[in-house]
């Protein structure tokens, strides 16, 4: 029984069957990659997982609870964090404030009227945020405006913001999309580091085979909205069906 169980999910957009009978089980403490050619339904699946899209039929259970129809902040409170294709951070705030906000959210829930105390007096929260920043080697950038960071640092900050909440599942939507090779490798190293330091389940939606084969422990291949095969990276590499549907196509 995995931490995330997708059962019989179907989703149609008009005449297009975006997802057809998707079954997927992500085991706890694994890095599970979902790959597939363009239009395979990866993004639709991700949007279903975070409750943004409600499938026509089927169920998505996270640790025994349905995620369907929940708002983004409720999904987060279940223990799912999300990293976006382009880093979503609070660009107007400082790096430290960026990390403090998830700490407050974790402690105080969806809403708490904390209008009189000073942020400066929240020592616990500050320590927590600084420890996290030290963990991703960004402590010396604490007081910089998040908007002025380099792209790689923005990604690093976004990861820190997700990890500081100690999520049980981290969803990564093409974390290296549009990155230069060096940045991609840095991101891979960062993710490996994160995985080595803590128990965390990661689901990666990714295009870049280099990233997938460097990180994933399990791989699901989607094609035309249906899982084609699910296996370990080594077996996927040599799988004839996958070659035909995806790797073969990529070789053109």
């Amino acid at each position: 029984m995995g931490i995330l169980e997708v059962k019989g999910v179907n989703k149609r957009f008009g005449g297009l069957q975006a997802l057809g009978n998707v079954n997927l089980s992500i085991a706890e403490n694994t890095v599970h990659a979902i790959i597939g050619p363009n239009g395979a339904g990866k993004s639709t699946l991700l949007n279903v997982l975070v409750g943004k899209l409600i499938p026509d039929s089927g169920s998505v259970m996270f640790d025994g609870q349905s995620v369907l129809g929940r708002k983004p902040h409720e999904i987060n409170q279940l223990g799912i964090s999300r990293v976006f294709q382009t880093p979503e951070i609070f660009t107007d705030l400082t790096v430290l404030e960026n990390v403090m906000i998830p700490c407050f959210a974790k402690r105080d829930g969806a809403f708490r009227m904390h209008a009189i105390e000073s942020v400066g007096h929240e020592v616990d929260i500050k320590t927590q945020a600084e420890t996290m920043l030290a963990d991703v080697n960004m402590l010396e950038k604490s007081n910089m405006h998040a908007g002025s960071l380099s792209r790689g640092d923005k990604r690093r900050l976004e990861m820190a913001m997700c990890l500081v909440q100690e999520p049980r599942l981290l969803l990564l939507d093409e974390p290296t999309a549009g990155m230069a090779r060096a940045d991609t490798n840095n991101t891979i190293d960062l993710l490996k580091e994160i995985k080595a330091k803590r128990d965390i389940t990661m689901a990666i939606i990714e295009h870049d085979m280099h990233v997938v084969f460097s990180l994933a422990e399990r791989i699901t291949v989607l094609a035309q909205g249906t899982p084609l095969v699910e296996d370990t990276p080594d077996n996927i590499k040599g799988h004839p069906k996958v070659k035909e549907a995806y790797l073969g196509e990529a070789a053109h």
Binding site: H73, N76, F84, E88, F90, T91, I101, F111, H114, Q165
Partner: peptide, 23 residues
């Protein structure tokens, strides 16, 4: 205050704030 910080976060990026668990 932390409340003020959340208000500034609303101005900066509501999407991220929602996925941070804040309504």
């Amino acid at each position: 205050s932390p409340f003020g910080l959340m208000l500034r976060a609303i101005k900066s990026n509501q999407n991220r704030l929602a996925y941070t668990g804040v309504s």
